[in-house]
Amino acid sequence: TFELKGKVGKVVKIAEDHYLVEVEGDKWIAYSDEKLSLGDRVMVVDVDGLKLKAKRIP
């Protein structure tokens, strides 16, 4: 999973306390310091076990 750092994905679902992000065809649980919206493009900035930390990108 460490190779996911720096990869770009898309928010495909918003849950109460996390997001579901699709990166290279796989879906991952993600969290972010900022509020994300459905369809936002994100970059993986860190990997915490099986969770990704994501940041919105333009």
Rank of each mutant, 00 (worst) to 15 (best):
T1C: 15
T1R: 15
T1M: 15
T1H: 15
T1G: 15
F2P: 15
F2M: 15
E3R: 01
E3M: 02
E3W: 07
E3V: 02
E3F: 04
L4Y: 03
L4R: 02
K5V: 15
K5C: 15
G6Y: 02
G6C: 10
G6I: 01
G6F: 02
G6V: 01
G6W: 03
G6P: 00
K7P: 03
K7G: 03
V8G: 05
V8I: 12
V8M: 09
V8C: 14
G9V: 11
G9E: 00
G9R: 00
G9N: 00
G9Y: 02
G9W: 01
K10I: 09
K10T: 13
V11Q: 00
V11K: 00
V12D: 05
V12G: 03
V12F: 08
K13V: 09
K13W: 12
K13T: 12
K13S: 12
I14C: 11
I14N: 08
A15V: 14
A15G: 08
E16S: 09
E16T: 09
D17Q: 12
D17V: 10
D17K: 10
H18R: 08
H18K: 08
H18G: 13
H18I: 13
H18S: 12
Y19R: 00
Y19I: 04
Y19D: 02
L20Y: 10
L20N: 06
L20A: 05
V21A: 04
V21D: 00
V21Y: 00
E22K: 07
E22N: 07
E22Q: 06
V23A: 03
V23Q: 01
V23D: 02
V23C: 05
E24K: 03
E24R: 03
E24P: 01
E24A: 06
G25K: 06
G25Q: 07
G25M: 06
G25N: 07
D26G: 13
D26C: 13
D26P: 05
D26N: 14
K27I: 10
K27C: 10
K27E: 11
K27D: 10
K27Q: 11
W28R: 02
W28I: 02
W28P: 00
I29G: 11
I29P: 13
I29T: 10
I29D: 14
I29L: 12
I29W: 13
I29R: 07
I29A: 11
A30K: 00
A30M: 15
Y31H: 13
Y31A: 09
Y31G: 11
Y31S: 13
Y31M: 13
Y31F: 13
S32P: 03
S32T: 05
S32A: 12
D33P: 07
D33E: 10
D33Q: 08
D33T: 08
D33V: 09
E34I: 04
K35N: 08
K35R: 12
K35S: 09
K35T: 11
K35D: 10
L36D: 00
L36C: 11
L36K: 00
L36E: 00
S37I: 12
S37P: 03
S37K: 11
S37A: 11
S37V: 11
S37G: 10
L38Y: 08
L38D: 08
L38E: 12
L38F: 13
L38T: 08
L38V: 09
G39R: 09
G39Y: 11
G39D: 13
G39E: 10
G39S: 11
D40E: 05
D40N: 07
D40G: 05
D40T: 05
D40R: 02
D40F: 05
D40Q: 04
R41S: 14
R41C: 14
R41P: 12
R41E: 14
R41F: 14
R41Q: 13
V42P: 00
V42E: 00
V42H: 00
V42G: 00
V42Y: 01
M43D: 08
M43N: 03
V44H: 01
V44D: 00
V44P: 01
V45G: 03
V45T: 08
V45H: 03
V45L: 05
V45Y: 02
V45Q: 04
D46F: 02
D46S: 04
D46E: 08
V47M: 06
V47A: 09
V47G: 05
V47C: 08
D48R: 03
D48K: 04
D48Y: 08
G49S: 05
G49N: 12
G49K: 06
G49L: 07
L50Q: 09
L50C: 14
L50G: 07
L50S: 13
L50D: 14
K51L: 10
K51Q: 05
L52E: 01
K53E: 04
K53N: 04
K53H: 06
K53Y: 04
K53S: 03
A54Y: 02
A54R: 00
A54V: 15
A54N: 01
K55P: 01
K55S: 06
R56F: 10
R56A: 08
R56G: 11
R56K: 11
I57C: 15
I57P: 03
I57T: 06
I57Y: 11
I57E: 12
P58Y: 07
P58I: 07
